[in-house]
Amino acid sequence: MTLPDSTHPTPDPGSAAPLYSPARVKELLTRHGLRPTKSLGQNFLIDGNILRAIAEAGGAAPGVPVLEVGPGLGVLTREIASRGAQVTAMEKDERLKPVLAETLAGTDVKVVWGDALDFDYASLPDGTRVIANLPYYITGVLLSRFMHAPGILSATVLVQKEVGQRLAAQPGEDAYGFLSALAALHGRVKHVRDVPKGAFLPAPDVTSSVIRLDFDRSRPAPEAAYLKFVEAALHHRRKTMRNNLRMAGHAGEAIDAALHAAGLRQDVRAEDVPLDQMRHVALELGVVR
């Protein structure tokens, strides 16, 4: 749905503090009787340089369809829209309706009210770019949804620094796991910049990172069976790949033969295995063809 007309006067941009300033954010929250909700992961950006960097890194440009999840007070939303992008913002907290009606007045931003976990991402138009300060508690689930949505070209997102490290990790690195593999199977990951706690109001407990994921839609999407196999192989860190696959139901002798055919030791850990060799094992076990 589109934004309703605000019942509040729109501040004059020329006389008001920038929308991202701490004073303006506090004034908006106070006037609308709101407090950030920790359960919804509400930490509002108050650093203009970082806002501009996110919009730039995300590819916000005239005519580009952009999806933002969790616009909050509309600070990043307005920055993206000011660059001419066609913005759809998805917000769960309906207490923010009057705030967004005020802060996004004069823009053509479309606001969809509802839970991001219930949205059909496959319905997005080709060429969509996600630009968002994601709620930390559902980051992994949302990134997986973005990866599987054929219309989404990229996702430039603010995430916990630890999650950013996992996304960008390579086989053999400490942070490597299923999320790392999932990202690599769908495209490539770029670390844009770290973001200190003080760039948010209220300040979160952790440092954040801006990460850009570019999805390669020119190659076939990984099969569901293969993704399940990779997840099982990586499920228990510090266990051997052989043990993890046995726990997933594969026979020991078949696993041994598959590892040998892929040029891997029987005591190898899955987090040390490059994806091409991982697929070789999956082929030998008949998981994929």
Rank of each mutant, 00 (worst) to 15 (best):
D205T: 13
I46M: 02
E173W: 11
I54Q: 01
N243H: 14
P18Q: 04
V130P: 02
L3A: 03
F200V: 11
F44T: 10
P204V: 00
V288E: 10
V66K: 05
L40K: 11
A232W: 12
D12V: 12
G106K: 11
L185F: 06
F119H: 14
N244K: 04
T37E: 15
V109R: 02
D5C: 00
F200E: 06
D93S: 01
I211L: 01
L34M: 04
E94H: 05
A254Y: 10
E162V: 11
V159A: 07
P135I: 09
R83N: 08
F229A: 07
L134H: 02
D5R: 11
D47G: 02
T30Q: 12
V66Q: 06
H280G: 08
D272C: 06
A101I: 04
L179H: 06
P62F: 06
P150V: 04
K110I: 14
D5E: 05
V112Q: 13
R52K: 14
I54P: 06
P65Y: 10
V66I: 15
V64M: 12
G106S: 06
T240C: 05
K26H: 13
H191V: 15
V64L: 10
G84H: 05
L45P: 09
R129F: 01
V87E: 03
H148Y: 00
A183M: 08
D214C: 09
G127Q: 03
L29P: 05
S39P: 04
W113Y: 11
L201H: 13
W113D: 05
T2F: 10
L117P: 09
M278C: 03
S6Y: 03
N243K: 15
L117W: 08
Q170I: 12
D194P: 11
A53K: 15
V210S: 07
P13D: 05
L275A: 05
H280P: 00
G74H: 08
V141L: 13
P62W: 03
Q277M: 10
N244W: 05
R279S: 03
N244E: 03
M241F: 09
L96H: 05
L29G: 02
S39V: 02
V192H: 03
A53L: 14
R242H: 15
D205K: 15
V75E: 01
P65F: 12
K197F: 01
G263I: 11
L227Y: 07
L142E: 07
M1A: 15
A261D: 14
A232N: 11
L259Q: 04
I54M: 08
R83M: 06
R212W: 00
K161T: 11
A270F: 00
H186W: 13
A105S: 15
H236M: 09
D272P: 01
L3P: 11
L76F: 03
R31V: 01
L167W: 12
A262P: 13
V157Y: 05
R212G: 00
H260K: 12
S21L: 06
R219S: 10
N49W: 06
L213D: 02
S208V: 13
H186V: 12
E91G: 03
R219W: 02
D272G: 14
W113L: 07
T7Y: 02
V112T: 13
G74M: 07
A89G: 07
